[in-house]
């Protein structure tokens, strides 16, 4: 998927579903192109053996010159918990599987990032707060507006300010740092990982960034 980062103008997505007997261990469901656009991917409802979702943030530019981030968006973070909830529903009555061992992986020109659930209750609370339009603070903001405002400022604007005339690679590294710091403050019940390189076998080397 990463080899497509410069050649496509819409996101791409795949879901990997664990098979009972291998090899292969997983089947791949490719999200059809009509369920993707410049800045979003619509995955279908999770099924009982849904395990890993992967989507691509490409290098394209929209009509107003906007580009996708090389890290997860806030929407991706919320959707990770949504994925967990959907799989829990799909496995209703099977407590051994439940939401289980899901991963949400982002592919961008910088590398790979992954989100996994580390605290179920925190994650579900975070999801409920982010999707409840009636939950408002003293400012009249929903939690989602509150978080999006903070994300825009603490990650996007802050990176622009700090960067000035830095290279694209330096800007991406700084964006990752500010995103990681911001992610930590969310206390969302999710863990963030990054993989910027592979080992001798071509397997990705994953590094834990923060909870």
């Amino acid at each position: 998927m990463q080899s497509d980062v410069n050649s496509v103008a819409t996101e791409q997505g795949s879901e990997f579903r664990k098979l009972e007997n291998g090899p292969p261990n997983y089947s791949e469901y490719v999200v059809p192109s009509f369920n993707t656009d410049f800045e979003w991917t619509d995955f279908p409802l999770a099924v009982p053996n849904s395990e890993v979702r992967v989507h691509l943030h490409h290098n394209g530019t929209n009509n107003e010159g906007g580009k996708l981030a090389t890290v997860f968006s806030m929407e991706d973070i919320v959707k990770t918990v949504g994925f967990y909830k959907e799989k829990s529903v799909a496995n209703l009555g099977n407590l051994m599987k439940a939401g289980g061992n899901i991963s949400n992986i982002l592919v961008s020109r910088r590398g790979l990032y992954a989100l996994r659930v580390n605290d179920t209750q925190k994650a579900l609370d975070f999801y409920d707060a982010m999707t409840d339009p009636s939950l408002k603070n003293s400012e009249g903001q929903t939690f989602q507006e509150f978080v999006l405002k903070s994300f825009e400022r603490e990650v996007i604007k802050k990176t622009q300010l700090q960067c000035g005339s830095c290279t694209e690679e330096q800007e991406e590294a700084l964006f990752e740092l500010n995103f990681t710091n911001f992610f930590k403050t969310l206390d969302s019940g999710l863990s963030l990982f990054v993989s910027l390189s592979t080992d001798f076998n071509g397997d990705f080397i994953w590094v834990f960034l923060t909870n």
């Binding site: 656009d37 979003w40 929209n62 409840d132």
Partner: peptide, 14 residues
Amino acid sequence: TSRISYVSPNTECP
């Protein structure tokens, strides 16, 4: 100025 929202128009409200 528009911001990239990453939100699908198929996203459902509660």
